[in-house]
Measured scan of single mutants.
Amino acid sequence: MAAGGDHGSPDSYRSPLASRYASPEMCFVFSDRYKFRTWRQLWLWLAEAEQTLGLPITDEQIQEMKSNLENIDFKMAAEEEKRLRHDVMAHVHTFGHCCPKAAGIIHLGATSCYVGDNTDLIILRNALDLLLPKLARVISRLADFAKERASLPTLGFTHFQPAQLTTVGKRCCLWIQDLCMDLQNLKRVRDDLRFRGVKGTTGTQASFLQLFEGDDHKVEQLDKMVTEKAGFKRAFIITGQTYTRKVDIEVLSVLASLGASVHKICTDIRLLANLKEMEEPFEKQQIGSSAMPYKRNPMRSERCCSLARHLMTLVMDPLQTASVQWFERTLDDSANRRICLAEAFLTADTILNTLQNISEGLVVYPKVIERRIRQELPFMATENIIMAMVKAGGSRQDCHEKIRVLSQQAASVVKQEGGDNDLIERIQVDAYFSPIHSQLDHLLDPSSFTGRASQQVQRFLEEEVYPLLKPYESVMKVKAELCL
């Protein structure tokens, strides 16, 4: 049975990233139509530049190519590739079939990587351009969430054990800070992308030097003109047959890092959902379990974690691919890159769409948070109580021993009897502590235990987050809708 299948058929496997999760716009960027249309555009740009620099290419040939950029006979191309065992030459023939007058000058002087690699770089750039505003929107939604809850005390956790208090907004800023680093890295790697350009079979530009009869300047002009037509500021000066596969490492490393950030955020949300302090959106008709109707599973956060793990592992592909590119190139890269580049971007696209949807509907339960604080705060307040007693004339050592005994009794009630923490009640009825009984409410005010959390939130948002989001103001209103 021949390899390949009808990918629109229910009898043929289709990647869930495309069929179930990723956005239509990201799927289109990695589609065959987008790819092969870009090949034709690159052939047109090459012909236009070659004509401008004096090669015998007519206006009629150029116009014929322009008129057929979208006229792609995919069936013919597939048949040609089956016959020739070469995808680029299959599309040269297919393009030439609908451009008979231009057929002889299509791909003039070029090698397969002229269309293959340059198209990949265009796709990487455009895919990054799709991700950047999506990530900015996630940051914006979380920034709104953090600002609104900047002063809401909550129990902090280290080692997932109760620690000092923080605020809900401050905790959210930990998430935002990681995503801001990801946004900066995505922008950097996007701006650092260079075009492969017009380089020939081993990167020496020998074929173009021959076409222009040894004119170095025209060869350099050709490279520059096509690079500018493709919208790049610069091209690699040095290439082998391909652009260095280190570029793929750079791009997928940034995406993998984004995956790590999203995994951490969504894990926190899942843990908070278990504590009943916070939940992701839950639709009115949504079913959490087929057997347990009360369940409210954090399905979206779980999906993000599941896909983020996949995204983090994909960076190993370009690392290994770059390491086995012998001399000017081997074909070890080809099949692998067809999979890992598309999957990385479709996965990143999915987790950003999902995280935006989550961040637009996060639900906080202040009463649950308050109750958990009441359970733990008495123990945390013991040092403040000791200091207040010393100020009232008591002995630190005597007070410490009193607190120690009462704390152990209260802990026994919590752990052995399943009761509430009654340390404060014990202190309130103990005559030894009568000098500070009137101060206990103040000493137990949760806001006095959150330090500068709310001020940190305000400063972080104003100095770091809002300036970073400013270039994306025009796209901030787009909502994230999930079908599944």
Rank of each mutant, 00 (worst) to 15 (best):
R396H: 03
I269R: 03
K224Y: 14
L108F: 12
R296L: 08
S31M: 03
D117M: 01
L440D: 04
D349N: 08
S31Q: 09
T202H: 04
C340I: 10
Q286P: 02
A322Y: 13
D129V: 10
P467C: 09
K477A: 11
G259C: 05
R245K: 08
I106W: 00
R404Y: 11
G116I: 05
D398T: 12
K35F: 06
F379W: 07
R303E: 02
T167V: 02
V226T: 10
R33A: 12
L319T: 00
V414G: 02
Y13F: 10
L152F: 07
F30D: 03
L131S: 13
W175M: 04
R371A: 04
A3T: 10
I351R: 01
V364Y: 03
M89I: 04
D317F: 00
A230W: 03
I373L: 14
D144M: 15
F157C: 05
V368R: 12
L193C: 11
V368C: 05
I238W: 01
K276S: 05
H400D: 01
S207Y: 04
M181I: 13
F460W: 06
D332C: 01
Q325V: 14
E383A: 01
R149F: 12
L311T: 02
S407I: 01
L121Q: 12
R374Q: 05
N353R: 15
V413K: 11
M316T: 14
V198T: 15
I57H: 09
E463W: 10
I238F: 02
R171K: 04
S334R: 04
T347S: 14
I57A: 05
H86K: 00
E79P: 07
L444G: 04
I351A: 12
T313N: 08
A291S: 05
L132R: 15
R188Q: 08
N68E: 14
K224S: 12
M380N: 07
I249A: 12
K134T: 15
D216N: 14
R85K: 14
L193P: 03
E70G: 13
M278T: 06
A143F: 08
L469S: 08
E50V: 07
L252N: 13
P100C: 06
R149N: 11
Y365S: 09
A136R: 14
V219Y: 02
A322C: 13
S454R: 13
T313W: 11
A260D: 03
V363G: 05
G109E: 01
K82C: 11
H400T: 03
G116E: 01
A411W: 07
S290N: 01
R404Q: 09
D32K: 11
S253Y: 09
D441G: 11
R125K: 15
T382R: 02
N353K: 13
M389I: 08
R245L: 02
V189D: 07
G169Q: 03
P318M: 05
K101T: 11
Y114Q: 04
M26A: 05
H437D: 06
V254D: 09
A47R: 02
F74K: 13
I369Q: 08
R141H: 15
W326D: 00
D248S: 01
L461G: 03
A348D: 03
Q439F: 07
I358D: 07
M292P: 04
F74L: 14
E148C: 12
H107I: 03
W175E: 06
N68S: 10
S434T: 14
E48Q: 09
H7C: 11
A410S: 10
V457Q: 03
S407Y: 02
V315I: 13
T450A: 08
E481L: 11
Q320Y: 12
R404C: 12
V413L: 09
V88W: 00
I176A: 09
E383P: 03
L362I: 12
M89R: 00
D191V: 10
G104T: 14
Y243P: 10
R83C: 12
I57N: 02
V405C: 14
